[in-house]
Design a protein around this nucleic acid. Structure first.
Length: 267
DNA sequence: ATGACGGATCTAATCCGA
């Protein structure tokens, strides 16, 4: 059985525990990384995951906003939860686990959205986002011989075909050049591989998020690729498949993000 | 034509998301 790792911005894990259950039953990833759980640790529906076999859980929540959790069927050990930009937000959790006879590191990120105005001088949220990305540039895809995987809602669509209209979104937060260049710097500085783009060519549109505000998300199809799975080169070489679970956007009371799954030839 | 929505919160109006 290949190792399968999934990421999903769930936009309230309590409200959508039933959708997570459906996703896990249908797709059976070994590990699921959630963002925007929007609850405190003691409110996390741990039993729902435990009953499905995801007994290893690294949960970093806070009241009302943000929050990340990594749940796993195989033994998972928490290493750290780094407070990027020292804001006190819960936007990162780092774990490790064994696969293919090796230890692997797994970063689960929820990068700040950045507000509306793409100018750090007048918008503190955008400033926060840029500083957050800047601090991510020290993340190497291999540290002390341990290959890493980095997943999450990075809230940036780096390439032209990661958005429905490159031209119309150039001044919209998530696709401005300072953000897309910053994210690509994180990617290259750490020698990461963008696994979705390793499988889907740059001239093809790919989205993982569709706004709630469209009348019909599927018809208007104005999406963005905000959710990512990156890996060290040696893991990228073992990638078997990438799956974007687009149909989850059409589920009852869906999240505005859909799950992304990477499967590796490792066990 | 990027908000027309949706979630959380000291339940009513406000903040936040992207």
């Amino acid at each position: 059985m290949p190792l399968a790792i999934a990421t999903w911005n769930i936009n309230s894990v309590r409200l959508r525990a039933g959708l997570v259950e459906r996703f896990l039953q249908e797709h059976q990833p070994d590990i699921l990384c959630l963002q925007e759980i929007k609850c405190m640790n003691d409110q996390f529906p741990a039993g729902v995951f435990r009953d499905l076999g995801y007994e290893y859980q690294a949960v970093h929540g806070q009241k009302g906003y943000h929050g990340v959790a990594t749940v796993s069927k195989r033994p998972l050990f928490e290493i750290a939860s780094t407070d990027y930009v020292a804001k006190g937000d819960t936007r990162h959790v780092e774990t490790c686990f064994s696969a293919g006879g090796k230890t692997l590191r797994l970063h689960n990120f929820y990068v700040p959205a950045g507000g509306d105005e793409p100018d750090p001088a007048i918008n503190p949220k955008f400033d926060h986002k840029l500083r957050f990305i800047d601090e991510m540039k020290v993340l190497a895809s291999v540290t002390s011989g341990v290959p890493s995987i980095l997943v999450g809602d990075l809230n940036i669509a780096p390439y032209e075909n990661d958005v429905w209209s490159h031209r119309q979104l150039l001044k919209i937060v998530s696709h401005t050049p300072v953000e897309t260049n910053g994210l690509l710097d994180v990617l290259s500085a750490g020698d990461w591989r963008d696994l979705i783009r390793q499988r889907i060519p740059l001239d093809e549109k790919v989205y993982t998020w569709w706004s709630y505000r469209a009348k019909d998300w599927a018809t208007s199809n104005r999406g963005r690729r905000l959710d990512h799975i990156w890996a060290a080169p040696e893991l990228a070489g073992k990638l078997r498949s990438i799956e974007i679970v687009t149909e989850a956007r059409g589920w009852e009371r869906a999240s505005d993000h859909v799950p992304v799954i990477a499967r590796f030839d490792l066990d």
